[in-house]
Nucleic acid binder design. Structure first.
Length: 821
DNA sequence: CCATGGTTATTCTAGACAGCATGTC
DNA sequence: CTAGAATAACCATGG
């Protein structure tokens, strides 16, 4: 089918496609159109990666918009949201407006009403439904990318429920689901009342094979000799072989998949020795620049290691990298500057990074639940192998598995190359999934009775494929009990209603279990505070009792200040339990301390906890006893509770946050907790979100802890000690600049407006533009830095205990002290 | 005494969505 | 019930 023959699209689009060089539709695309894609027909397309799925989505969305509708494109990853947005924006000149909505990217519901195509993550869509976004019922077309992810234990149910809700809200909704090739795409199609287009067709051939001995055997029967000398390894030989190329002089890039971060990094180090020999003089310079950019992103060992290998034309890629690192690496790989990436599975499901050759080095991965190394799913291996073949560059892509002996070669062929991908199975009947989704279903008015809930659940994939219809009812009853006991829903005869807190929890997008934990912790702290105060004041002291009543501060700032005064978190963390007096102990628990709050949110199921390494058990058990008064809630017993281990992991995570707000250097934190810069960002982001939710809950339940929570949240947000909160709130001022300004005697936003410009300039290391911007944002009228000379600033007469270096050192020292105890 | 090289014991293990209200280095 | 790579620790050898 020719693109010129397409009908039902906005004017100019067929021509535009033609101009892009798309004259003829790929067979699966043509099949989709014939199935009624551009006439609003629902469709499941189960086709390989890079076989033109995006155009299928675009045809559906554009034709829907042409009919006056509005389309939604659901992505599984935030990174993909921006990628897709950029792609769809090329239709803007034809009057198509594109908007994105993810947790961290522009999100106002109103603004999206005017867009024709909206790109969002499944969680964000779910959240928008929960919050009754106005434009939800204007949708005429929804595209779900990577729909096979309904199989995912954690996030699959969200996608499943969200699709069911969208379809219920808009009965005539066109549903287009894009899937990798899976075993039972027909079941998915049945569920969505959609036609099925299934195909193995690829625009670029994919040769799959196994390397063993001195050659790769491919699935088409061909062989390619790739000798491996004695004592050498297979992977570098394969990478070098791809770079040597065939007859053409084009250098082929490689993507190497391994099963751990550490393996990715060490493999990259080895591959760098190979790629180094293939880079040209020009490239060497560009790579050096790229390495410098990488070092600039973060001052950590990970960043440094990455820069080193990048300078030689290789890279590693995993979730410990900062997102800026990842983007740089991905872009440079696409630009053919980086010749080889060694990656964990991040890259298999992430943004588009095609490669001439894909080497799947590890096909097993450690899995604690499984109790050892677990073979990866066929689907997962196929996703990795599907990255082989760069459109327009390669005649075909090569995907290679590695075998050490003839037996495992045969096994790999059997297990992965000849094998079909697994079926997808709904994971909706798991209790954690239903906990959150049933509450949301009740709270947003989709159902108000047990029967109503089951009727709604009947529209999910789970119902479509289960052979145990009882199961869902049983789990539903258990979950409803749980929600009732925790006060999130109320029964009135047959009718179930969400309580006000229940509504809030649903809208905050919290797992009800997280919310329950947070509420328990905060109420526990309130109760203990009252008890301690009573004990201190003596039970009959009426004056202090009435004072206590009057405690909640009407003025937030006053309470805020108060919280700051009460919290004593610097310096005495490790050493001061020599217990000066009881009073200090009392003040410690009077308001929840930051550590207490961090631990509270870290032990919530919404926080992904750090892993305990050898030695950590002792370190954190000790810390657990040292800081016991700060924890909100009963501390599990070291000897009796199985939950103790989890408690310690949460403590480790909470400690990381405490270091972060104690202004401990990034590289120090990564070193101390064995994480990458990306992990710090991730933990901080999650903590920010959960503390924000905790703040809302506290204010709704009228708990004084709001002020302490708000401060703890602000500190996590800026990564600063309490004295810098005011400064760090100024746009353009982060943890580093705030500390420098503070050191120079500029301690508040107000100081910034009054201060000697020379001092400001000096504190900001002579960056005039930065200084001007900061002064302007701080509300200073005369912010110009013209004719200001930083050398006019008086020489450092800074009191040393407030000095940046001193504070930093103290923080770092504190950190290392804890290490050795 | 130390550098080097080889062998054995120990360690360690993927990923990443969400509120709200505005802005990091 | 199940692994395997990287690294640390250890030991032997030779200068």
């Amino acid at each position: 089918m020719r693109t010129a023959d397409l009908t039902g699209l906005p004017t100019g689009i067929p021509e535009a496609l033609h101009d892009e060089g798309i004259e003829e539709l790929y067979p699966p695309q043509a099949e989709a159109v014939e199935a009624g894609l551009t006439d609003g027909e629902s469709l499941v397309a189960a086709v390989p990666t890079a076989s033109g799925k995006t155009l299928i989505a675009e045809l559906a969305m554009l034709s829907s918009v042409a009919r006056g509708g509005k389309a939604l494109y659901i992505v599984p990853l935030r990174a993909l949201a921006s990628e897709k947005k950029a792609e769809f924006e090329r239709w803007e000149e034809y009057g198509i407006d594109v908007g994105v909505s993810t947790g961290n990217y522009e999100s106002t519901g109103e603004w999206l009403s005017s867009r024709d195509i909206i790109v969002a993550t499944s969680e964000k869509v779910d959240s928008l439904v929960r919050n009754n976004a106005a434009w939800m019922d204007q949708l005429t077309c929804v595209v779900s990318d990577e729909v096979h992810l309904v199989d995912d234990r954690n996030r699959g149910p969200t996608l499943e429920v969200t699709l069911a809700k969208l379809r219920r809200l808009n009965p005539n909704l066109q549903t287009v689901a894009l899937s990798a090739t899976v075993g039972n795409a027909d079941v998915v199609a049945d569920w969505l009342d959609a036609k099925l287009v299934q195909s193995d067709w690829r625009p670029i051939d994919l040769k799959m094979g196994v390397h063993y001995g001195n050659a790769i055997s491919f699935d088409d029967g061909s062989q390619r000799e790739v000798p491996v000398g004695r004592g050498e390894r297979q992977t570098p030989a394969l990478v070098a072989d791809a770079l040597d190329g065939d007859d053409d002089d084009d250098q082929g890039s490689s993507l190497v998949f391994v099963n751990s971060r550490r393996n990715a990094e060490s493999a990259a180090r080895r591959m760098a020795d190979v790629t180094e020999q293939y880079i040209t003089g020009d490239e060497r310079g560009e790579l050096a620049e790229l390495a410098a950019e990488i070092r600039d992103i973060s001052d950590t060992e990970t960043s440094e290691d990455l820069a080193k290998v990048v300078a030689k034309g290789a890279a590693f890629h995993h979730a410990g990298l900062a997102s800026e690192h990842r983007t740089l690496v991905e872009d440079a790989f696409r630009d053919r500057l980086i010749k080889c990436i060694c990656a964990t599975p991040t890259l298999a499901a992430g943004v588009n990074t095609p490669s001439r050759r894909v080497v799947v080095r590890d096909w097993q991965r450690y899995d604690g639940d499984y109790g050892g190394m677990k073979p990866l799913d066929v689907l997962e291996i196929h996703q990795m192998m599907g990255r082989a073949g760069r459109p327009g560059l390669d005649p075909y892509g090569e995907a290679v598995l590695l075998a050490k002996d003839a037996d495992s070669r045969d096994e790999l062929f059997e297990r992965y190359i000849w094998a079909d991908a697994e079926d997808v199975h709904s994971k909706l009947a798991a209790e954690p999934a239903l906990r959150t989704h049933l509450l949301a279903t009740i709270a947003s008015g989709f159902a108000h009775t047990r029967e109503g809930l089951l009727e709604f659940l009947d529209q999910t994939l789970y119902a479509a494929q289960t052979d145990d219809p009882e199961r869902l009812g049983q789990v539903t009853d258990r979950v409803l009990d749980y929600l009732e006991i925790n006060g999130f829903v109320e029964f009135e005869g047959d009718s179930i209603q969400a309580t006000p807190v229940g509504h809030t929890v649903s809208r905050l997008y919290l797992d009800p279990m997280s919310a329950a934990e947070i509420i328990d912790g905060l109420e526990w702290s309130a109760k203990h505070r009252t008890e301690k105060l009573r004990a201190l004041a003596g039970e009959t002291d009426e004056e202090s009792a009435s004072e206590r009543e009057a405690e909640p501060e009407p003025d937030p700032t006053a309470g805020f200040q108060k919280a700051s005064e009460m919290v004593s978190d610097d310096g005495d963390g490790d050493g001061s339990d020599d217990g000066d007096d009881e009073l200090e102990f009392e003040t410690d628990i009077t308001y929840p301390t930051p550590l207490g709050l961090y631990h509270l949110v870290c032990r919530t199921p919404d926080m992904y906890q750090l892993y305990l390494k050898s030695g950590d058990r002792e370190t954190y058990t000790e810390l657990c006893y040292e800081r016991e008064p700060e924890f909100l809630g009963r501390v599990p017993s070291e000897y009796e509770d199985v939950a103790f281990e989890d408690w310690l992991s949460a403590l480790k995570t909470a400690r990381l946050l405490e270091d972060w707000v104690g202004e401990v250097d990034e590289d120090r934190i990564t070193e101390r907790y064995g994480v990458g810069p990306g992990d710090i960002r991730g933990k901080v982001e999650t903590a920010e979100w959960l503390l924000g939710a905790a703040e809302r809950l506290a204010s709704e339940l009228d708990l004084e802890a709001v002020y302490a929570v708000r401060e703890a949240k602000k500190r996590v947000e800026y990564g600063v000690r309490e004295e810098l909160l005011d400064l760090a709130g100024v746009r353009g001022v982060g943890r580093k600049r705030a500390r420098r300004l503070f050191e120079a005697g500029i301690e508040t936003r107000a100081d910034l407006r009054e201060a000697d410009k020379a001092v400001v300039l000096k504190a900001l290391r002579g960056r005039r533009k930065t200084a001007e911007k900061i002064l302007e944002k701080a509300g200073r009228q005369d912010y110009s830095m013209e004719n200001v000379d930083e050398s006019d600033a008086p020489d450092d007469a800074v009191p040393d205990d407030a000095g940046f270096e001193t504070a930093k050192e103290r923080a770092n020292q504190q950190a290392s002290l804890g290490d050795f105890e």
